[in-house]
Nucleic acid binder design. Structure first.
Lengths: 192, 192
DNA sequence: CAAAAGCATTGACCAAAATCAATGCTTTTT
DNA sequence: AAAAAGCATTGATTTTGGTCAATGCTTTTG
């Protein structure tokens, strides 16, 4: 249990067996079936989730009822509505499972206690959020500054596993496009 | 000297006078004239910069030579090419001054030493990067999911100071639009 | 102070992506 | 096994934003 979580943790920060045991007491396992919600817009995000297995997506729904995917999550990634988690405000995102999933949850109180008493946990969190920030920035740069062909090629290069496991219309949603447009981009690319 | 830096620091983490003095030994003041570069694409980003006064922008330049503004920075904000700073890779962004500016620089080695020896510094950094991440996510959500009118209204509401101090074509660049399009959006909005 | 550069706006036209609609698969559900 | 739902693709049409060009201000610069 929690194998991947601790593997990822120790890639960033060393941990003694005792420290590992301490952290374990704060972790909550959870399984999710495909299409099940982890979080619904309007509810408060009480935990963040480390993904041991499976695939999830976080998305917002606009006035017209269209989904806009903010983030995919695969094995080894963390997913949550961080703003809601930190502030206690109602979530603006939905999170659900694209495939059956196994998660490791950390509650707000666990998070705060661990931040207080374990500097190594804070380092782990800092490194994770830094990575997430850099990834977002790269995505935004590409969104603002590149052609659609480049952006899609970029996405494939960066996330080949997602391309294989996730339907194309979700990738279109992630890129802010309609499925039709993505389909035509793919045709243009393969014509070369 | 460094007034705003420590004010912002202490909004997040308490500091004894001794701790403040310790941190001060790591800080480097720097002034920048309007249009001067803090960082040029291709160079390695050796420091990050806290803005005591003035306004800067970070931007990339695409194949066609067009600027795409990634981030504005005003008093109290931090600006850098974080990826280059952390990895030592050549920067992909340029940073320059929109107005004369006064900065507080922290070098890579200072950053690493402070992270090591001062948990409070790590907390400060973690909180800053978390805030930056949340802001970026909000921006991306709005980019993907809202109409241009909404996005511009959003921007005004969120950054009224920027709207007042920065030429409109830079705001257009930040939004990924041409100046002409932004001008027309403004007309459409004011027509109501 | 005069010339030049920078900036916002407007118009005419063009290109790109969205929308609407239909088709043929494949996967789920019953 | 049949029906339904989900999905990707394609075509025709509309909408939206970009491009090119010109004008009138304002701010910088020599």
């Amino acid at each position: 249990m929690y194998e991947l979580f601790f593997r990822k943790f120790k890639e960033k920060v060393s941990l003694s067996p005792e420290e590992e045991e301490t952290i374990k007491t704060y972790l909550i396992p959870k399984k999710l079936r495909k299409k099940q919600y982890l979080l619904q817009e309007g509810d408060v995000c009480k935990t963040f989730a480390f993904i041991e297995k499976g695939a999830l997506k976080a998305y917002s729904v606009d006035n017209g009822g269209n989904e806009h995917i903010i983030q995919f999550g695969l094995e080894g990634w963390i997913i949550s509505d961080l703003y809601s988690f930190l502030t206690g405000e109602p979530a603006t995102y939905n999170i659900d499972a694209i495939e059956d999933a196994e998660l490791v949850l950390i509650s707000k109180s666990a998070h705060e206690e661990l931040l207080q008493k374990m500097p190594k946990y804070e380092t782990f969190i800092r490194m994770n959020i830094t990575g997430a920030y850099l990834a977002l920035q790269k995505r935004l740069t590409s969104t603002i500054g590149s052609s659609l062909e480049e952006r899609y090629a970029n996405f494939i290069a960066l996330y080949p596993h997602i391309v294989q496991r996730v339907p194309q219309h979700m990738i279109a949603s992630y890129m802010g496009l309609t499925p039709e447009t993505l389909s035509r981009i793919r045709r243009r690319i393969s014509a070369k």
